[in-house]
Amino acid sequence: MNTNSNTYTVIYTTLVCVLVAAVLAFVSQTLGPKQAANEKAETISQILTAAQFGEKEHWKEIGNAETIKFFEENLAGEPVITSTSQLKALNYKIKDGSEDLELPVYTFKNGTIVLPVYGAGLWGPVWGYIALNSDCRTIAGAYFDHESETPGLGGKIKDDPSFRAQFAGKVIDFEDVKPFNIVKGGAPEGKQNAIDAITGATMTSKGLDAAINTWLKAYDVELAQFFAAISEETEENVTIEEETSDEQ
């Protein structure tokens, strides 16, 4: 058979491509659910780490199923609030076609609220989760991840626990020019809404600072309303409890 004829070449390449495509489609279909579960568990473990339920390694150790179970047991509903107008007012660019942008807020039964943030680092996207106490102002913890920041420099936003530890106990101030500050050269003594930037990673620190502030501002109004709703609920509960105790 002449393997160099045009007809043979065309038929051969077509067959190879169809065959390879079929194999890939099959594998992708079979492994798809497992990959999705891994991705979900990864996101959840980042949220849980930010919310101070345990360190990242802990969630890896106990496995996907247990991590997701713990998350679902401790989650007090997953309110999704829409806030496009708020973002437009901040000149935040929104992709065409999306009328309402959904901003998820994860609330846990112990009162911790976790907000996702994302933005641009030096080499690629950076993202993370900020956990607030039930007053919606005090930061309980944070977790950040990145796609391609320099290891040992910008990569410290993820790898250096002491950077993340700075967030705990800080208080967001919406009256300030920037609700939260990552300050190059060190945060001023006693400033409640500022932490030290990473030495040698100015651009990553700036990017993270911008990401946090953009989203904190976007959440501001909604969080206030959200918090008001929560406090009303708890007050109602308290009054009901008081009444019942009176009856007894």
């Binding site: 393997t3 043979y8 390449t13 491509c17």
Partner: peptide, 22 residues
């Protein structure tokens, strides 16, 4: 022995790509 000589690099590439994606 079945690969057409003129497109052999492309066929090799398809095979390698398949393995890498897998």
């Amino acid at each position: 022995n079945t690969i057409p000589n003129r497109v052999r690099i492309i066929i090799q590439l398809v095979v390698v790509a398949l393995m890498v994606i897998l």
